[in-house]
Amino acid sequence: MIKLYDYELSGNCYKLRLLMNMLGVDYEAVPVDFYPGREHKSDWFLKINPLGQLPVLVDDGVVLRDAQAILVYLAAKYDPSGNWYPVDDPAKLGDISQWLAFADGITSTASAARLHEGLFYDFDIDACRAGAHRLFRILDEHLWFAEKQDRDWICPGAHPTIADIACFPYVILSEEGGISRQDYPAIRRWCDRVKRIQGFIVMSGVFPAGPAGGRLNALSAA
């Protein structure tokens, strides 16, 4: 069975739990004492990932680090429909990859701000927040124009892709870092749509969608 080296409060671990649940893939989570135990910097863990970072996924002898890389692997291997990561569509793969890199930018800004506020990490909080707002502005504009073309997701197409899953966790957790989403209405509507994807699950700090259903309701409520 797939083994996920996991930390409950990590948005990067959450995005893997999220995709695996949406794909209906079984896995075993191995809790790593990230905080306060810093087990991800321990000798045994550094042998698995010399970067000392979570998550790590082990499947069929394949050992992978980096949340975005693992999303690529999981979707390519376990989604026969090819919707989440269409391996035969080069233009779309390029588009998805650019948003996976964008998700890394959200991690180094919005996630860093959250670690500073909640778990006392020594980061420049003002720079983290300013960086996150810059990225949120870009994402909001992108999603706003997408909606004008009747698109629901970050990349064109009727179905969400791993780009949505990669960007979602640290956007939805941003308030914990003192980054309000008040000024990003298109992001808020998109978050609501992600929460309505079949198989969506929460993590601590993320709440399920409200009872109203469908895109129309989501739009009028926003």
Binding site: E8, L9, P31, V32, D33, Y35, E175, E176, S204, G205
Partner: peptide, 21 residues
Amino acid sequence: NEAELRWFMQLIFAQDKPILE
């Protein structure tokens, strides 16, 4: 084990955090 105890405590407390805030 200790990792599991911390996992459960933080899972629960991080659910309270946004409500408290």
